[in-house]
Simulated scan of single mutants.
Amino acid sequence: RIPQAVEDALRRGERGDTPETPKPGNPLFDKARTVVIGSNDIAADAAIACANELGFNTLMLTSFMEGEAREVARFAVAIGRELVHRHKPLNLPAMVVFGGETTVTVRGHGKGGRNQEIALSAALAMAHVPRTLIVALATDGSDGPTDAAGGFADSGSLGRMRDAGIDPREALNANDSNEALARAGDLIVTGPTNTNVNDLTFVFVYPD
């Protein structure tokens, strides 16, 4: 049976004697407090703190990154090239991080996820970008229908894939980033973290 106090409150609402939901200024909120204990910003800030301890100069670019994964990958590579050639926007060693959640337009029948597609796409543009590492991962440890959190790419990724019998361009066209990265040893597997605050992409650039 519904407690009488609850029934009375519902009846008052039905009659219009009380608002359906509490509105701003209601005394019910006088002792209420909202605390965000997990967010993309918090995850990025934790990564920045770790990188700072390791001696990296760091920059959080945005936590609102959206768009096609392979386009975001090219943007990440462009940041790396800027850091390598101009040492901008940071002195080296540098780490730039951005968060959000990209999308993948599925054209093939392969297996992967948005972060693995970022890594594979970045690999295709990084053959002549030295001292740069791009890491893309899902904060919950699960990227797409795979057991990987994401992947990484550097100037040697294309060679590792080709040595393993993978055509990187064909793999990207087939949306088969998981197999390509796995064969190259460029997958990131963390296991489930049970906390999903979207994705993070990192651009690391090291000095000569």
Rank of each mutant, 00 (worst) to 15 (best):
M126Y: 06
T105D: 11
T62V: 03
G80Y: 03
K23Q: 14
K31F: 15
G100N: 11
G25F: 01
V96I: 09
L92E: 10
A43D: 02
F56L: 11
T102S: 01
A46C: 03
M60K: 15
A51S: 11
M126L: 07
Q116Y: 00
G80N: 05
S63Y: 04
T132V: 07
P89I: 13
H85N: 12
P27H: 03
I42E: 03
V84R: 14
L137Q: 09
E20V: 12
L90A: 07
I37P: 00
D41Y: 11
H87T: 11
K31R: 13
A76V: 08
A122K: 03
L92M: 12
N57A: 09
G99C: 07
N40Q: 08
P89W: 13
M60S: 10
K23T: 15
V35A: 04
A47L: 15
D45M: 13
G38A: 15
N52D: 09
K23Y: 05
R15E: 13
R70Q: 09
A76P: 11
A51W: 04
P24C: 07
V106G: 00
A32M: 13
E66D: 12
R107W: 00
K31D: 15
V35C: 02
I37W: 00
V104G: 03
I37H: 02
E117D: 15
L133Q: 03
A122R: 04
L124V: 05
M126R: 04
G99P: 04
D30S: 14
D45A: 15
A73K: 02
A127Q: 14
A78E: 14
A76K: 04
I42K: 07
M65I: 14
G110E: 07
A32Y: 11
